[in-house]
């Protein structure tokens, strides 16, 4: 394999990982109240991206070699992709689609948390950002001694025990302080609940997200990852070595099909954390 080819692969993988960490490109966003960088990675989407990247790079390598060899322009694109490459891309896409379908069919734990947060007016991550801003605003107003607006002052606490001999002004001030404290507490509790409920759904890093579900390492996930890595690496090696995409054995394609089907089937019973 030429050095530029290896460099290109490494760069492409790094770029994809970097992009996937910051955005939701490899994530299902089942809890939209979490920011993209905290969403869990999706095995099906990652597999789709993996095969897309491998076949794109391999096709690029073949094209580059043909161009450098100065071949006939009419045959430049001939047999660029092998039937097996198309099968692999198809399997990855079917696996991803199957995963999405399973999620859509079920009333998952993610759905329950998502729905409950919506009921608390936290429908998106933007709402969470707003909530944090509100808490900060109340805290700064309290620290600065800014009085309540007339509308806010209407909901003055009812269960306030006044000190004997308190003047009306002292009572009003005390009530305002308590109202501010109650509001901050209320908002902070809502934020605490958001953090508590979404904690199990935050990413634990790419690899752990790939191979674990709620019960820990899941065999159906592990086998899908292992076979994808192995066959993907072999695919690249053979392509770079021979200048053509490999003619994969039917059994190898069968393994990919079985691991994809196994993933979708077992996903029906799993909760991915």
């Amino acid at each position: 394999m030429p050095i530029w080819g290896t460099t290109l692969i490494i760069l492409a993988v790094l770029a994809l990982l970097r992009l996937s960490g910051r955005t939701a490109i490899l994530k299902d966003q089942l809890i939209p109240q979490l920011p993209p960088n905290l969403q869990t990675f999706s095995l099906a989407r990652t597999q789709m991206a993996w095969w897309f990247l491998i076949i794109l790079l391999c096709a690029g390598d073949i094209l580059a070699k043909r161009l450098m060899a100065g071949g006939d322009a009419g045959t430049l694109l001939q047999n660029l992709l092998s039937p097996q490459a198309l099968t692999l891309m198809g399997l990855a896409t079917l696996t991803a689609g199957g995963g999405v379908a399973v999620d859509a069919m079920q009333y998952t734990r993610e759905d329950q948390v998502n729905d409950a947060l919506k009921q608390l007016n936290l429908g998106s991550y933007a709402d969470v950002v707003d909530l944090r801003a509100k808490i900060a605003d109340w805290q700064s107003r309290t620290a600065a001694g800014i009085p309540l607006t007339p509308a806010e002052a209407q909901s003055i606490p009812t269960a306030l025990a006044a000190n004997p001999g308190s003047s009306q002004a002292e009572l009003t001030t005390a009530r305002q302080i308590q109202k501010k404290a109650a509001t901050i507490t209320d908002l902070q509790r809502l934020l605490d609940e958001y953090n508590r409920q979404t904690a199990p759904f935050r990413t634990q890093g790419w690899f752990r997200d790939m191979v674990t579900d709620v019960d820990g390492t899941a065999l159906h996930r592990l086998q899908a990852v292992a076979w994808s890595l192995l066959i993907g690496a072999a695919f690249v090696y053979v392509t770079f070595k021979s200048g053509a995409m490999p003619q994969l054995d039917d059994n190898l394609l069968g393994v990919m099909g079985i691991s994809g089907a196994g993933y979708v089937g077992f996903k029906y019973n799993e909760t991915q954390y």
């Binding site: 025990a161 507490t185 209320d186």
Partner: peptide
Amino acid sequence: HSGIATIGHD
């Protein structure tokens, strides 16, 4: 917990 009640009004 907090000694005051705002929830009724809310």
